[in-house]
């Protein structure tokens, strides 16, 4: 895609004309469906909440689609609005912007959603099975639009993926302030998360997914190498025979462990 076309798509935010409905891609890794325990009222509320991002004229068509997504996946991702361009990290000067700081954040968001980086890119999940960058594609589109037009006298506020808006601030203020999954303490159980996430009012940001700071498996490889290096060192006084590292894990963790053990000079078995 040409740069000028890409700029136009970023700057338009949520398109005024509905993009074509997309086939559910079987070529990429999808997040597992979430637990289904929403009441009828909650289902209505979830769809109503999702429609807030779109003009009235599209509601009729979107209601059906969003309800279907909710029933099928336990969450409304708004698949239809996933952009047609390739989301990937590139030079900050290849993003439309008025603020270089804002452009650096666009770059980091794009890396977190890159198909070669993200675990479930269509569900905007970077790692950990549930580490969300945004809750749905409307939030992505709106955030990128805000970032492209903001100046160094504004700050963008994100509530669990939802771009609340641009607020006047000053040049040495943060350009973006992010909160993810913050709850009134008594409403922070796993089933609360399931429900409030389905309603579209909170998300699980893991650590570097919702904060746009993921750098691929390198982070966990390094941390693990340092950990087992020091573990081996700590145990050395008892025995000189510490050579085997046995572990298990899923996803990014399991891949990182043998690599880290090799760097730390150990033999490893990972189940």
């Amino acid at each position: 895609m040409k740069k000028v076309e890409f700029f136009k798509l970023i700057q338009q935010g949520i398109p005024s004309k509905l993009p074509q409905k997309k086939e559910y891609s079987k070529a990429i890794n999808h997040a597992p469906s979430k637990q289904q325990n929403l009441s009828k009222e909650d289902k209505i509320l979830a769809v109503k909440n999702a429609l807030r991002y779109f003009p009235k004229k599209h509601h009729k068509e979107l209601i059906k689609e969003f309800l279907e997504e909710l029933k099928k996946f336990g969450k409304i991702y708004m698949y239809r609005f996933k952009p047609i361009y390739k989301i990937t990290s590139k030079s900050i000067y290849d993003f439309p912007h008025k603020s270089t700081q804002a452009a650096s954040i666009m770059m980091m968001i794009s890396n977190n959603l890159d198909h070669s980086v993200a675990q479930h890119p269509d569900e905007l999940i970077t790692y950990g099975g549930n580490g969300s960058v945004f809750q749905n594609w409307a939030q992505y589109l709106l955030t990128m639009q805000y970032l492209s037009e903001m100046t160094n006298k504004q700050s963008l506020v994100l509530y669990s993926g939802h771009p609340l808006g641009l607020f006047p601030s000053h040049k040495n203020a943060p350009r973006v302030i992010i909160t993810n999954g913050m709850m009134i303490p008594n409403y922070s159980t796993a089933s609360d998360l399931n429900r409030f996430n389905a309603l579209g009012v909170t998300q699980y940001g893991q650590m570097t997914a919702g904060s746009f700071m993921y750098i691929g498996p390198q982070g966990i490889v390094h941390g693990t190498a340092i950990t087992i290096l020091n573990a081996a060192r700590m145990l050395k006084s008892n025995s000189n025979k510490i050579k085997l590292f046995v572990s298990s894990g899923l996803g990014g963790m399991s891949g990182a462990q043998p690599k880290a053990a090799k760097i730390a000079g150990l033999i490893s078995v990972t189940a």
Binding site: I105, P174, V176, M183, L193, Q206
Partner: peptide
């Protein structure tokens, strides 16, 4: 002077 900041509930060990 951070360019962006974030605070989250939940990480590797689970929500809450």
């Amino acid at each position: 002077g951070a360019t962006w900041v974030s605070i989250h509930n939940g990480g590797g060990v689970g929500w809450g």
